[in-house]
Design a binder for these strands. Structure first.
Lengths: 185, 185, 185, 185
DNA sequence: TTTT
DNA sequence: TTTT
């Protein structure tokens, strides 16, 4: 008995994902995707950009850690998930509602980029299956060290001003505290 | 006036993608995604695997080349596209129909894997923008050679029997010839 | 070259659709869909309702007129479309953004209801065709009268207070004037 | 933890739905949707029809009965569901696989047609609610008779030859027997 | 096997 | 502002 608000979103990260942990240790990554609709104008026979749309996304557990490790500001991603609303009262006491995508699957788009995929050691998750895998035989050590070296460079490359993006933080902010141990969805 | 057969598919590659070129030089990559539906059985309170589904996918142009370079047998991917049917007559003269996903967006899933994304030089495509971009500073040569070395290992790792998967071939088979210069979709 | 923000929404109308016409005579129907996510809680082994989500939808041309004629407050619908954002400044000068679904296809859900479908005379639209008109075999009169009796009760059942819902209005409000002759999407 | 093969399908019924019951009394409706992709050819500046695609669909319980009562050959529908594969061996011993959409939500499209919705008495289902019942203000009788006149014509219009479509049958064919009490999905 |  |  499904049949809900399925959404498939394509766009670019407005900033590096933010990784957090609930008190019980569950990882959550939050990020915003900017999606600019392009429509083909039959009159003028050319493409027109619509107004950009910014959607907050949130992803849990192992995927959250993978997202924080793999994605940075500007990258184009594909997101499959369910649209949700969260209401709150702003400082003036007005009821506001915010939309958020609960991510089921996410990955970098290969439309304008290539990706080198590395399987996440399924420790602690009970992951039932696969994914990458390719690089494990590459000669662990070499691959590993390569990875370590690369990370910083990649950071700088995006000219991002945000420090700590994609870095884990065991925060104690209100939001984190408000989170239960388990994903609410 | 849209409103068609939108499909969002998650599953694993059954083999390395096959990259081909139409006579006029347009790239096409074909691959098959195996998707095993999991349903939560409320009686027994556990997850049950359904019958695996195998879907052919085809992607064009720059994305085709990126797919061939990035994805290998076994990897989990997210695919967004439109479902199509192709009919043909088999050797016994029976009309058969084959389903195929025309890929709009594809990427490796980050559920069980990480990915290092590198922006494709937008040469010859007029691509309006990008994703990745990060790895340019990794020191091209090193990265490159690393790739060459890694490829074979990765290959073996998935226990695949198909040789040449992911390799470009300027084929002249009937199918390639039948293709026009432009994607039919 | 597609690959956008596809959304498929299921929920209930919060009110009767509002039908308007652009100066040049193009029909637009606007309505809001309330969608309450239900998730199966594996701990307690029961279904839990999430926070309701309210999404504005807009549909154009013949479909707009059909929507206004067919749908009323409370009905469950399926909507297929693309999610868009519209920004504006509120009275305090704050930039607000509103989400809206540009409807590609819409229909009443048959999950808890039946529907008697009547093809719209394709006058003025060039629509290539349509749906049904099946019920002739039900024994018109009997079925009909049964329907008549039900209708009023059903109405009250919905407890809707809005009068004039689903009625066309050649409005001249700013929004209508702002609209061009053609759908902006 | 979802993230599967979501499909949203728009097309026309190739025949009236077939309603069956499992031994334990659960209703199932099967039908085929023909979907003809239309693409806008930028060269010639006109729409082109692609090859038609035929997809089997199956829907369960109350919705199955509603479908059988509401939909007939030729009608345009919107279907939201999950794509599945079913394998079998044909008479020559070849393994064949058939695709099928497990319907989550379905309804008649309002693009070229109107619909009069009537809430299904939620007897025996526990359905939490429904749509329908709006048209009371149209002036029942008049509207009704208008409908009656249209119905037969519409019927013939469709030139449908299949009799008994949409009629319930407590079949005992192999397939029905193979079905368990509960939907397999 | 098929719809518009 | 709201539906079930």
């Amino acid at each position: 008995m499904a049949g809900e608000t399925q959404i498939t979103l394509v766009g670019n990260l407005t900033a590096d994902p933010e990784l957090r942990f609930t008190p019980s240790g569950a990882a959550v990554a939050n990020f915003t995707v900017a999606s600019t609709p392009r429509t083909f104008d039959r009159q003028t026979n050319e493409w027109r950009d619509g107004e950009a749309m910014f959607l907050n996304c949130s992803v849990w557990r192992q995927a959250a850690e993978n997202v924080a490790e793999s994605l940075t500001k500007g990258m184009r991603v594909i997101v499959q998930g369910r649209l949700r609303a969260r209401s709150y009262d702003d400082r003036e006491g007005n009821r506001r509602t915010v939309f958020e995508v609960q991510v089921d699957e996410i990955g970098p788009s290969l439309r304008y980029a290539t990706a080198r995929v590395t399987r996440t050691p399924s420790g602690g998750g009970g992951g039932n299956w696969s994914g990458g895998g390719a690089q494990s035989s590459y000669g662990g050590g070499q691959q590993q060290s390569g990875y370590q070296q690369q990370a910083p460079g990649g950071q700088q490359d995006w000219g991002q001003g945000s420090q700590g993006g994609g870095q884990a933080q065991q925060v104690n902010d209100p939001w984190a505290n408000a989170q239960s141990d388990e994903p609410p969805f």
